[in-house]
């Protein structure tokens, strides 16, 4: 008798436990407006749910005068674990006759970048930052090698006032 009772109890427990799970999936099925979490991705490009902090492609910050802050110190190049940064600098003569190293090309190999933020961390001038762009795929591999400094851009002169304060 005990065996029969246990047998029936097991059957009953099985049905109850299975019904519990069925209720949950039914709840999702009948309330799709609440439960569906997927996004209609290519349709919602206008307002993507990507955080501003998302670490995407590296850019060199240019201000409205087409000036950047990169002094071509190559710290980012040294910090990069994948050699995806190449700083090509050139020597120019300033008005007072001194030779000075300035940035010629800030070459960024996007195809090798792992978005580890080491370059951003290494930069003493805060000249580079990461955008939150995420659609980085393309059809031609050569377009992934980018030169980040805009043509004709130059180093932003340090304001004299702050220089004095620092002295």
């Amino acid at each position: 008798m005990k065996a029969l009772y246990n047998y029936l109890k097991e059957v009953a427990f099985a049905f109850v436990s299975l019904a519990n799970g069925l209720l949950l999936t039914l709840k999702y099925f009948v309330t799709p407006w609440k439960s569906i979490i997927t996004e209609n991705y290519p349709d919602n490009r206008a307002n993507p749910s990507v955080a501003d902090e998302f670490a995407g492609e590296v850019i060199l910050i240019h201000d409205e005068n087409n000036e950047h802050k990169c002094t071509a110190c190559t710290l980012c190049q040294l910090a990069c674990p994948n050699n995806s940064i190449q700083i090509i600098s050139k020597q120019v003569e300033t008005e007072d006759g001194k030779k000075k190293k300035v940035l010629d090309k800030w070459v960024y190999h996007l195809e090798m970048c792992t978005f580890c933020k080491q370059c951003i961390d290494a930069c003493p001038q805060d000249a580079i930052k990461m955008t939150n762009s995420y659609e980085l795929s393309c059809f031609d591999r050569s377009t992934l090698t980018k030169i980040l400094n805009q043509p004709g851009s130059k180093l932003k002169e340090k304001p004299k006032v702050t220089a004095k304060v620092q002295e």
Partner: peptide, 13 residues
């Protein structure tokens, strides 16, 4: 559609 809605998805759309 049933699978999609039960799995918090849209299903084919």
């Amino acid at each position: 559609k049933v699978a999609g809605h039960m799995q918090l998805r849209h299903g084919p759309n």
